[in-house]
Amino acid sequence: MSVGRRSSATERLSVLVAVLSVPAFTGMWELVARSGIVNTVLFPPPSTVAVAVLEWIRSGQFFADLMASLARVAAGFAIGAAGGIVLGILTGRFRLVSSLLSPLFHILRPIPPIAFVPIVILWFGLSETGKLFLVVWGVFFTVWLATHIGVQKVDRGLIRAAQMLGTPQPQMLSEIVLLGALPYITVGLRTAVSISFYTLVAAELAGAFAGIVYRIEIAQQNMQTGQVMGGLAALGLLSFVADRSFAILAERAVWWR
């Protein structure tokens, strides 16, 4: 049928366009940069960026930077998320705990984590603890709020059914409430993945000795714009991969939906 043929032709065309999109954009960038319209020192062509990235990898610094950044994000995310989930379950489930903590958390939560950089430097200097603190801070409140709301939205029927079956309180919290709130918690965790990368930027700009954002800053000071752009691309790719893998993981975690 002609309609079917046309739609499959359109589909093939859009796949082709999608595949060519990034190379075309990169090609145009290369042309513009080499045409002399712009200053190549400030706006280097992608070939220069690629050379800088290759050099970065070959020197072994890339791997060290990647590991330093990943370790900060992973540790900060793990601590912040664990704390957020535990406290979210407690404030979501127990009125008294909520009365105690929620007002405080609601005051602290809207302060952008980046604003804590000055005080963090005073408290922790340039140590890893300070960087961890910033990432944890950013992740914790997001996960806490998502968990707190999720716990309150847990199907009351499930909780009543579990109560009638004699479910003891620890199992009620760690199984029924946690899994019941999991759809909300995973949304919070996914948002927190992006936030952990935002706060990583602040943490490394505040002073570090390794890391992807640290490398970007050093390259900027040396006018190595190719390296700066390579660093940005690496950061973008890293947080993209983290977000996608988390999305897949989250879908499997709440498989019964």
Binding site: D155, G157, R160, A161, M164
Partner: peptide, 16 residues
């Protein structure tokens, strides 16, 4: 609630 008193609700409320 006491476990020797069982309850069936209008909705099954099974653990999904």
């Amino acid at each position: 609630p006491r476990p020797e008193i069982g309850m069936v609700f209008q909705q099954p409320h099974l653990f999904p």
